[in-house]
């Protein structure tokens, strides 16, 4: 009960943040009725999805300070679990999705154990290595469709059990609910014992250890928790009705996830959301705008990359870090 109360308790945020969050929530709730076009709807769904991913990354990457460049592994596990169990055994989404999350958590726990013998760069590179291995396996494993991927059976009628709808609005509300579950969870997490301990680990590992914190165990816990992004993978499977190793497991996806959280402000509740709000539309509009024109492929990513470099060099704490800095100076 106490935990639940903490999850809904936003009192320690400033007035401006509370008002902003409320207005934003009303906007999200009403969005499908504002008459936006289908393209904008897709962008909004992507924004919510990537915010969710970013929040997952934030547990280990933001609060814990461990640069995880393999988050797409969990997304992929979630997506494949939902898709495969549906194709093979017709298992409904509502059963396969929790299965996917459990598998992703189990997988993270398993690889987290050796991974967290490593620190800093070594850890980051190792997360890339494990995710490339996993992607290679899926891309060559004929049983799971290899590089061709899997198509999900399309139902004639909308089906809630299998999460198949004709209109994007349903998908929108579904991902919105997941998004809020993630926000409330993170709101609790940031003030939980583990949340505080992770921030200490990020600041100063030696000091953390002297305060009774089992560093490796804390990191493994946070890493396993961050595997909840698998739920987004499951969503991608039923939403796109098609998955392959590139769309749900690629390194680019991992990078985007980490980048959005970092650009917005790693280690803050709003950071990943702000990052996604910036980069998803940028990505989509640039992509559809430039990608359509021949000879301009890659320009969107170049702009992206410039952003990463500038932020890393001048404001590693991200957009939210800049806002915080101004506020501290002002007060």
């Amino acid at each position: 009960m106490e935990k639940l109360k903490d999850a809904f308790d936003f009192r320690d945020f400033s007035r401006a943040e509370q008002v902003g969050f409320t207005i934003f929530s009303i906007f999200l709730l009403l969005f499908p009725w504002l008459g936006a076009g289908s393209f904008v709807k897709v962008v909004m769904i992507q924004f919510l999805l990537f915010s969710l991913f970013g929040m997952g990354w934030n547990t280990i990457g933001g609060y814990g300070g461990q640069v995880d460049l393999g988050k797409a592994q969990c997304v992929g596990i979630g997506a494949y679990t939902v898709a495969l169990t549906m194709v093979w055994w017709k298992i409904p989404f509502w059963v396969s999705m929790p299965m996917g999350i459990l598998l992703a958590v189990g997988y993270s726990f398993m690889i987290g154990y050796p991974l967290f013998r490593l620190k800093g760069h070594y850890f980051a590179i190792a997360t890339i290595a494990t995710s490339l291995v996993l992607q290679d396996i899926f891309a060559n494993w004929k049983l799971v469709g290899a590089a061709k991927g899997i198509e999900l059976p399309i139902h004639d009628h909308p089906d809630f059990l299998y999460m198949q709808f004709k209109s994007d609005t349903y998908y929108y509300y579904f991902i919105m609910v997941l998004f809020y579950v993630a926000i409330f969870y993170m709101n609790w997490f940031r003030r939980s014992k583990l949340g505080y301990q992770l921030r200490m680990i990020k600041d100063d590992e030696d000091a953390a250890e002297s305060l009774g914190i089992d560093i490796r165990w804390c990191k493994i816990k946070a890493y396993s928790i961050s595997a909840f992004v698998a739920v987004g993978g499951g969503f991608m499977a039923v939403y796109n009705l098609y998955i392959d190793p590139v769309s749900v497991m690629d390194l680019d996806l991992s990078i985007k996830i980490a980048l959005m959280a970092m650009l917005g402000g790693a280690g803050s509740l709003w950071g990943p959301i702000i990052g996604a709000a910036f980069l998803v539309p940028l990505d989509r509009f640039l992509g559809s705008w430039l990608g359509g024109q021949k000879g301009l492929i890659g320009l969107d990513f170049m702009i992206y990359a410039m952003l990463i470099m500038v932020v890393s060099a001048y404001q590693p704490r991200g957009i939210w870090g800049i806002i915080e800095q101004f506020r501290r100076k002002g007060s």
């Binding site: 760069h121 492929i297 170049m302 990359a305 990463i308 890393s312 060099a313």
Partner: peptide
């Protein structure tokens, strides 16, 4: 001058930039 995490992301950014510059 920044933290290690920024160094990691920074060279990562350089990697993406050069890659997509080549693609462009």
């Amino acid at each position: 001058r920044g933290p290690a995490i920024a160094q990691l992301f920074g060279t990562f950014g350089l990697m993406l930039f050069l890659r997509y510059l080549a693609q462009f």
